[in-house]
Amino acid sequence: MNTAELLADAFGRIQEDVHGAVEGLTPAELAEQVEPGANTVAWLVWHLARVQDDHVAGVTGSEQVWTAGGWQERFGLPFRAAATGYGNTSHQVAQVTVDDPALLTGYYDAVHAATLAYVATLRDADLDRIVDERWDPPVTLGVRLVSVVNDDTQHAGQAAFVRGVLMRRR
C-alpha cells in the first residue's frame, strides 16, 4: 500500500460513516439537538465536510467545492462563504438544517471526490512539504491530512452516536 492508497482508504471510511449517520433520518431528526446546546447530525456532517473541503483546497490551491460546486447556495445557510463551523454557538449549530438528507451526503461526496482526486497524485515525499508556517513547528502536508482524517473521524463518530440516540427515541 502506498501513500495515496492509504489516504484513500482512510477517507473512504469517513464517507461510509457519513452515509451511515445520515441515511434514514428525517430532516427533523438531522436537526434535532438531543439536549440543549448539543451538536446535531446535520451540523456535524456539514462541519466535517466543510473542514475537509477547506483544508484540502488550501493545500491544493484550488477553490473549495462549497463555492465552486454551488453548495453554499443550495444549503442557504446564514454564514459567510468561508465558514466551516469552527467556534459555532449552539444557536448557529441549530441553523444548519436541510430539507433533504441527500444534500448533506451529496456535499460530502463531492468533497470526497475532490479529496480522492488530489490524494491519488501524492507520493511519499510530498508529505514533507510545508503547507502552513503559522505553527511551530510548521505543518507538513502529511500532518495536515492526518489532522483532517482525525477530525472527520471524530465528528462522524459523534454523528453516529447522535443517530443512535435518535433511533432509540423512535
Rank of each mutant, 00 (worst) to 15 (best):
N2M: 08
T3H: 10
A4V: 07
L7T: 05
A8K: 02
D9V: 10
A10S: 11
A10R: 12
I14R: 00
I14M: 04
I14A: 01
Q15V: 08
D17W: 04
V18C: 06
H19N: 12
G20I: 03
A21N: 05
E23A: 15
G24Q: 07
G24S: 14
T26C: 08
P27Q: 04
P27S: 12
A28P: 05
A28K: 08
L30G: 03
Q33R: 15
V34M: 01
G37P: 02
G37K: 08
A38Q: 06
T40Q: 03
V41M: 00
A42C: 10
W43N: 06
L44N: 01
L44R: 01
L44M: 09
V45F: 07
L48Y: 00
R50A: 02
D53M: 01
A57K: 04
V59F: 03
E63T: 11
E63M: 07
W66C: 09
W66L: 10
T67M: 03
A68F: 00
A68T: 13
G69E: 04
G70W: 02
Q72V: 12
E73S: 15
F75N: 04
F75I: 10
L77F: 14
F79P: 06
R80V: 08
A83H: 04
Y86H: 10
T89L: 11
T89R: 12
A94L: 10
T97Q: 14
T97W: 04
V98Y: 06
D100M: 13
D100L: 11
P101C: 10
P101A: 11
L103G: 03
L104K: 00
T105Y: 07
G106E: 02
Y108L: 09
V111T: 03
A113R: 09
L116D: 06
A117F: 06
Y118C: 05
Y118E: 03
V119E: 01
R123K: 15
R123I: 08
D126C: 11
D126V: 06
D126L: 13
D128N: 07
D128V: 12
I130C: 09
R134W: 05
R134C: 03
D136Y: 05
V139D: 01
T140K: 03
G142C: 13
V143T: 14
R144S: 15
S147C: 10
V148L: 11
V149S: 05
D151V: 13
G157F: 10
R163Q: 14
R163F: 13
L166H: 06
R168M: 12
R168C: 08
